[in-house]
Write a protein that binds this DNA or RNA. Sequence first.
DNA 1: CGGTATCCAGCCTGATACTG
DNA 2: CAGTATCAGGCTGGATACCG
Lengths: 148, 148
Amino acid sequence: MAPHKNTSPAGRHRDVRPQPTAANGGEPDGEVCRQVLRILALIGDKWSILVIGQLRDQTLRFSELHRAVTGISQRMLTLTLRQLERDGLLTRTVHPSVPPRVDYTLTPLGTTLLDSVVALGEWATTHRQEINNNRRRYDATHPSRTQH
Amino acid sequence: MAPHKNTSPAGRHRDVRPQPTAANGGEPDGEVCRQVLRILALIGDKWSILVIGQLRDQTLRFSELHRAVTGISQRMLTLTLRQLERDGLLTRTVHPSVPPRVDYTLTPLGTTLLDSVVALGEWATTHRQEINNNRRRYDATHPSRTQH
DNA sequence: CGGTATCCAGCCTGATACTG
DNA sequence: CAGTATCAGGCTGGATACCG
């Protein structure tokens, strides 16, 4: 996202290319993982999922999304929508009226993605407590850095 | 990741709290989405998935992971492993020998997560070409900013 | 081998101000 | 209403050096 371009630092999981370590046969990492990384590059940012989630079963206009997605700035909403539109996950429809009106709707592709993502959400729901317990135990067991 | 602490900027999808817009009933965003965000906070960073993927069906020591995960720095490998260990996704076993030897293995929890994530990977594999086409079309159709 | 501690470049995001 | 443009600050992660 953001004024496009990404060379390395702070760029999360973008730049997903073969990159065969040196001159080996290739596939030093799992192929599956690289595929997953591709998705994270699509919707692994701070807002995409929230936006897609809002459009799950309804069409919304810009201002409605702005209100629905808690805390998003106008700028990030625009950037996020453009990215999702580019990838074909949603469509942008401009109604030539005054004042202007722009509707956003999930495409079939976007819908299938959301469905897949929801599966992950279920994993989270199921194991949320377990993870919290693990963390508490770890922080208690490892006197080291408890974040001063 | 990184020297812990996160207040807002550049912090991707961390800080997932209720945050009810103002004084409304709550749940302005979908509940499912917030759950998904929680997972992204776990493994949505640049390296976690790669590391977990490597441990899919084997135990590896630090240096082996370092070699297996293309491009990761020693620092980030350590940080990533600590985080995953804290969440209980993998275990760290120190063998008191000289030279030292530390083994990393996926826990059952980590394995189930990987399985869920792999499902997403399949979505990516299936729709990869479609997305690439969408992008090409978009970039061709929208003369606007083709990234100067 | 397996880390830990610093330094710091540069991307990402929120805030703000301004158009059609 | 729906964006776009600009700016500043903070977080992220690579590089480097050192330790048990």
